[in-house]
């Protein structure tokens, strides 16, 4: 090429941030469990280490599955279709986890979210790298890392705000008191449920456009 191309920076940055919403969702999903833990554990009456371990790490099992799905399908189906799929799974998982009535359903939906996390964490940098101009590629791929950090921050803020919403729960409650409180019954559901909004935005921005 003779002349240095004049890039449409707005378009390139817009695509990057739209794709990096996948990183935001990853970050949110990765840490939301930590803030919800003190509330869903009494609700589902989790007492053993194994039960509690499943609660926090069922999503990680899904992450491995998500990465393996990308080995098999990302070259065949393309990046966009899998990004759409992960957006759909993020939304499904957020809704399902928020409405779960059994610990089994809770873990099943967390695992579905994990598949979306495992896929997104890998697909977003792959995608950005493949559309980015060479001299900006490192910066644009790193934007995904920035969005992961913002997602983590968002989950921490949402968890804090929701837990503050319950003014009746005393500072050091018993397990029984947590179970019967608003936080134990509904609060933790909103922590997971809040993710539906960014997940749906991510899904539609991925679907939109050729």
């Amino acid at each position: 090429m003779n002349n240095k191309p004049k890039f449409n920076q707005r378009y390139i940055w817009m695509i990057t941030f739209a794709a990096a919403m996948g990183g935001f969702l990853f970050g949110y999903d990765f840490v939301v469990i930590g803030g919800a833990k003190p509330f869903y554990e009494p609700f589902f009456d989790l007492v053993t280490v194994t039960q509690r371990g499943w609660g926090t790490s069922s999503a990680i099992v899904g992450c491995i599955v998500g990465a393996i799905i990308c080995i098999l399908l990302s070259d065949t189906l393309g990046r966009k279709r899998l990004l759409i799929l992960s957006g759909f799974l993020f939304a499904l998982s957020a809704m399902g986890t928020a409405l779960a009535e059994s610990f089994f359903a809770f873990n099943a939906f967390r695992m579905i979210g994990g598949v979306a996390m495992g896929a997104a964490l890998n697909l977003v940098p792959m995608y950005i790298s493949e559309i980015a101009p060479a001299e900006k590629r490192g910066i644009l791929v790193t934007i995904n890392q920035l969005m992961i950090m913002i997602g983590i921050l968002a989950a921490q803020v949402v968890n804090l705000l929701i837990s503050k919403f319950d003014t009746e729960l005393i500072a050091s409650p018993t397990t029984q008191m947590i179970r019967e409180s608003w936080s134990g019954q509904l609060g933790w559901r909103w922590m997971f449920g809040a993710e539906v909004i960014p997940a749906i935005i991510f899904f539609f921005t991925d679907v939109h456009g050729s």
Partner: peptide, 29 residues
């Protein structure tokens, strides 16, 4: 933290990047 993903997304050939990069991602998990 960020450069693992940057390098992983850059070093594989176009024809098989999806599978090759995803192997690195699986190893990461």
């Amino acid at each position: 933290a960020p450069l693992f993903w940057v390098v992983l997304s850059e070093i594989y050939p176009n024809r098989i990047r999806g599978a090759a990069m995803s192997i690195g991602a699986t190893a990461h998990w």
